[in-house]
């Protein structure tokens, strides 16, 4: 193996044995103008090989534009997690989920497999009330220890409510986009391109900001 040493591979195998159903990892790459696509493909292939429940589907953002549209994929490399019936669950990783983001990747895979973590009744009730479309962007760097927690929360919100969609965006891979969104501290969370905050804040804070998009 190129990226995972034996010890890490074994730990991952153990962690992924906690999956309930199978999960498909749809990896969108493109032929030109994608510096990290090949490495991302190699990394994901290796990651997936540690569990029989994980399946890779290689797609091309241009050639498979139907699927790209369906899964709301706008850039490459982008990774979409699909459940056992290959349903889109509205969560994505744009850029490679290595470094600390391996942790958000793991937790989202476990969630999508059907082994879902229960939230408090109060939080659950607030999530259920969201009835207008919400897009959450979480900008991260791979060396940031707090970022995976924020991605995990954003993904969890999307998994709990079909009106919410959540993207991890690796700030160095998508440098122009992070410039556009004025990212200079991570994790930076942007909601519906309008409301934003910095830091791995509690779910309550995510919901406070999300609820601002629901009025009017």
């Amino acid at each position: 193996m190129k990226y995972l040493n034996e010890e890490v591979a074994k730990q991952l195998e153990e962690i992924f044995s906690g999956m309930k159903d199978d999960v498909t990892v749809a990896l969108f790459t493109k032929e030109d103008d994608c510096e990290s696509c090949e490495d991302t493909n190699d990394f994901i292939s290796e990651l997936i090989s540690v569990s029989p429940k994980l399946h890779l589907e290689n797609l091309d953002i241009d050639k498979d534009s139907d699927k790209a549209n369906e899964f709301e994929v706008l850039m490459a490399p982008s990774i979409v997690l699909l459940d056992k019936d290959k349903n889109y669950k509205r969560i994505k990783f744009n850029g490679v989920p290595s470094g600390h983001e391996i942790n958000s990747f793991i937790s989202s895979v476990i969630e999508v497999s059907g082994n879902s973590q229960k939230l408090s009744d109060e939080i659950q009730a607030r999530i259920e009330k969201i009835n207008k479309p919400v897009n959450i962007k979480v900008f991260v760097t791979l060396a940031c220890p707090h970022c995976a927690g924020a991605v995990q929360k954003a993904h969890k919100l999307a998994l709990e409510n079909p009106n919410i969609q959540a993207d991890m965006i690796e700030a160095q891979t998508f440098f122009d986009m992070s410039e556009e969104y004025n990212v200079s501290s991570v994790p930076k969370i942007v909601i519906n391109d309008e409301f934003e905050f910095v830091g791995n804040q509690p779910l309550e804070v995510f919901l406070d900001e999300i609820e601002k998009t629901q009025v009017a």
Binding site: Y3, G18, N103
Partner: peptide, 14 residues
């Protein structure tokens, strides 16, 4: 490219 596995929170099994 490396991975920084966070052992604390992910071994959801037990």
């Amino acid at each position: 490219m490396d991975v920084n596995l966070n052992l604390s929170s992910n071994t959801s099994k037990e």
